[in-house]
């Protein structure tokens, strides 16, 4: 499987009080646990990203519980209200316990 690499789009800067849009994507197969192996007929075990969370300056402000019905390479778009400059931290939790994270900084205009 290709190396799992999260991608996030956050504006570089915003005015105080702005509500910004954040787009996130991570490449992951999101194996549902429903599919069967064509050769052996055995079920392929479930392996998905089951949780996504977004924090700003250490405070979690948006989370998603993910079930197998979310498509492969899960894409999540949401918003944040920016009151100060700081760092967004995004994390994805895999069924096997691995946590993938990435960070983005944002500045205040003016």
């Amino acid at each position: 499987m290709a190396k799992i690499r999260p991608r996030v789009k956050v504006p570089r800067s915003a005015s105080k009080g702005d509500v910004i849009e954040i787009k996130t994507l991570i490449n992951h197969k999101m194996e549902t646990g429903q599919r069967k192996d064509r050769k052996t007929g055995e079920k392929i075990p479930r392996k998905i990203i089951n949780k996504f969370s977004a924090a700003f300056n250490g405070k979690t402000f948006f989370e998603t519980d993910i079930d197998p019905a979310v498509s492969a390479n899960p894409y999540i778009q949401f918003h944040a209200k920016v009151m100060e400059a700081g760092t967004f931290k995004f994390s994805w939790v895999d069924d096997d316990g691995t946590v993938y994270t990435t960070e983005k900084k944002i500045k205040l205009d003016g």
């Binding site: 948006f62 989370e63 079930d67 019905a69 979310v70 498509s71 999540i76 778009q77 949401f78 209200k81």
Partner: peptide, 23 residues
């Protein structure tokens, strides 16, 4: 399995809107 996802918002989300892609 009917569950797809659950979004959790806070006032810092600014607006209660989100999108994703589902099966």
């Amino acid at each position: 399995n009917p569950d797809v996802a659950t979004f959790h918002f806070t006032p810092m989300s600014g607006m209660a809107a989100a999108s994703t892609r589902i099966r």
